[in-house]
Nucleic acid binder design. Sequence first.
RNA 1: GGCGGCGUAGCUCAGCGGUAGAGCGGGGAUCUCAUAAGUCCUAGGUCGGGGGUUCGAGUCCCUCCGCCGCCA
Length: 633
Amino acid sequence: MKRSYLTTPIYYVNAEPHLGHAYTTVVADTVARWKRLQGYEVFFLTGTDEHGDKIVRAAEARGLTPREYVDRIAEKFRQTWPLLHIQYTRFIRTTEPDHKRVVQHVLQLLYEKGDISFGEYEGLYCFGCERFLTRKELRDGLCPDHRTPPTPLRESNYFFDLSRYQNWLIDHLQKHPDFIQPPGYREEVLGLLREGLEPLCISRPKSRLSWGIEFPFDPNYVTYVWFDALLNYLSGIGYPDDPSWEKWWQVAEHIIAKDILKPHAIYWPIMLRALGLPVYRRLHVHGYWNLNQAKMSKSLGNVVRPGDLVSRYGADRVRYFLLREMAFGQDAEFSEEALVLRTNAELANDFGNLVFRTLSMVGKYCQGRVPVPGEETPEDRTLKERLLSAVENFAREMDHFRFHLGLSLLNEAVREANRYVDHQAPWELNKKGKQDRLGRVLYTLLEALRVLAVVLWPIIPRSSELLLGNLGLSPAEELSLERALTWGRLKPGQEVQRGKALFPRLERPSFEVPDREKDSAEEKVEEKTYPLEEFKKWDLRVAEIVAAERVPGTDRLLRLTVRCPEERTVVAGIAEHYRPEELVGKQVVLVANLKPARIRGVLSQGMILAARDEKGLKLLVPEETVTPGAEVG
RNA sequence: GGCGGCGUAGCUCAGCGGUAGAGCGGGGAUCUCAUAAGUCCUAGGUCGGGGGUUCGAGUCCCUCCGCCGCCA
């Protein structure tokens, strides 16, 4: 059995999930699905990193214990991934007892081996920040945050001696050129290694930080940062107790963003080496998404929340854009405008429309059944061969994480198919009653759709499965690369559905700030009707009320916490009509892109819709329960 | 300060020694099965500035300018 073990980093829970997390995880999920298509057994690990003083401070700022805080944020991560159709095998948290045991086991082992030493460290400590500052961070000799001089402080800590393994690692990198990909990052690591490695401080005294994993041989210290976090890749597959960990570890591939290259490319291999374990097989490093604010709608704000994007554009569109727009390894620009333009052009106009026009013609000309194909002509063969060869090249690119190149190859094949439709003109064949020829042309197109649906599954899983269903096929049967490439699986006579458009074309958004004066002048001459585009500016969604309480000192105001799907606070003037306790659990309609307003000291991020007449006020609610965040329109 | 990367058509980028490319956007034409979608034609950009190597340089070397990483 071919196996694959893929990991994302465990995400640090000092912030909520953002676009960068989403990208890494989408990549991992896509590769996992790609491997499954090829018949691999896959273990896909993701999770959260939950120790450290930043967590303690973030928790304090919200009046929570670290435990309460990490539970809350970890849950947000866990809930975000299904929205993007991500299917991981296991979600690991560094605060789990199993993980703690592994970390302690490893610390003990390395301590006994002599790789961990105790030593004194001297540095500049800021009591305000509760941490040591590097000289680089200082501004005019002062702490940049507190504007106070740092205090020189000595502290004893445990250190992991990296330098003993430096030459071994250089050697390993030279013998395995594709250990770190793309190659630019390998060069960077070799550069770092040539400069020499300092001992890595891996502890914090408990007096200063208690939120961590205790050293098994010294209860006065806890582990710090990387030692704890990196080991998740082992504890996540059951190391050392569950014997199956080894079969996964042999094929481990890590996917990370470039900001954590050093720990993954240097500390981690050395830790593994010190433990006497084989190093992972490969490290895949990607770049950053730069947010182009000018081309973003206002309501998304500074941090792009994956849940927001999905509720606006749908998971498949978002996944496609992320993989298509970024050359893996390099930085890329993110904007909603680019997302709309790209997915309109490639998913709606080219691919979606090819699907729709083909199924539509089969409906009209063949009674909605797979036609009996007539004799194959060179044109048919050419389309088939170009498509299959595009898929082969796509496979090569996918294997190398060059998703953007792979997808552009499939786009070329889609264009080829659109050309084929125009040249063969099935509507002409139908008029002239050339049934055999018509059957062959539409059969060829249906087969092309089948192949595309399967190979696109790793990128746009939901749409792929819908399409296979419309073709009268079962995804469970068809989702195999080998089967995809076997031409002629569709059986004449089988019923197909046209279905709805897979990727409805989106209006091109307007991101310019509206010119108020001009708008109002126009409104005066216009009647009080507005084009549809006006309505589409409003982001209306179904929100579920998870908490409600009166705003103190007011008669009319309630403070609501809603899920849509992210959590928001909304102030609503409905206290005269609804009691807080009867609202919890109710689904309502939220205006999600209203400018936030502070009402009685509470920041309200949206407005709840209600109808009012002489009898009072009634909230607008969906007829049946829907997914929180569902679009209203 | 050290190491590295980048700067090519309006936008996003490919090209890495031999007559400047793609996609999108824009402009024009056309079919009508289709999601105002498809298909066809169309962009004349000192390839950041300057110098050098070469028969010949976005493509190699040097230097300057502007961005951006990593390290100290």
